[in-house]
Design a protein around this nucleic acid. Sequence first.
DNA 1: ATTATAAATGCAACAATATTTCATTTACTA
DNA 2: TAGTAAATGAAATATTGTTGCATTTATAAT
Lengths: 146, 146
Amino acid sequence: MTHAKTTYQFEDLLDKHQLKKTAPRLRVLSMMYSKNTATSQPDLESVMHDIDRVTLYRILNVFEEKGIIHKVFDLNGTANYAICHSNCGAHKHHDEHVHFNCTNCKNVYCLNELTLPALNLPGGFKAEGFTLYASGLCSKCSKKAN
Amino acid sequence: MTHAKTTYQFEDLLDKHQLKKTAPRLRVLSMMYSKNTATSQPDLESVMHDIDRVTLYRILNVFEEKGIIHKVFDLNGTANYAICHSNCGAHKHHDEHVHFNCTNCKNVYCLNELTLPALNLPGGFKAEGFTLYASGLCSKCSKKAN
DNA sequence: ATTATAAATGCAACAATATTTCATTTACTA
DNA sequence: TAGTAAATGAAATATTGTTGCATTTATAAT
């Protein structure tokens, strides 16, 4: 599931999207790939306190545009960012998966393995994208609860 | 579907939740009941410009706590508020319905009539609430598109 | 290797929003 | 009708989103 990525692979990823291989970008990539949960901008800031707030903001924006990451809002409405594992491209995200927000540890998990069941909308509504949000206890926190 | 509510019914609603029947609260209720889409705080502010911003903020908060309304984030992460039609109570929301965010008119619809299909989560994950977000063109905008 | 240039960064400044404090007003109770 | 607790409005602060610009850096061309 979690592939250990090397710096070279991150550089290739940036190359592929015609982005310059800068230190801040490589650090953001390696941090996000090392986690199986989405990361909020506040979290990123506190870990990489030497990188400017605005730089992070712009890195996240350009990564999202290029389809490297996708944005997901947690229960409090704060933006979290996660690596796009499936076939995402610029302006064409396929993040039609399930997001799980743990009410205890506040982590946001992207459950990529799950596919969304079909759904028929009322007349006239033409859906393009779906995201299912589930909230509750994640596997770690439900273990602790015993 | 859309019930025309009288002032008396709004007063009863506030009574039921041990909230004082004040003018700002009644106006917020009547505005939200008159729409079939969720309302953002900016929208509320612009319509009721004589009510203080902070008052609106607190009214929305207390309504949400009491289970009168629920919060839903649109594609941009801004909070929208809608009346809870089903059996919601304080700290126990049953907003397990579908939210539809129109990419054209930006409106957020609560599709209460739809029920979510079952979903089995990975081992250990205990879900309490579900919300499905769909985005695309709403019935009005898809008509216009022809 | 060196240089030119376009892009990325960091900083300052600004805008918008969320949130707290407190004095005043208002709704309800006795 | 008076007393009380709650709600409001206004000011002030914190946090977050966003833009402009000078400086630095990565890359392409020489």
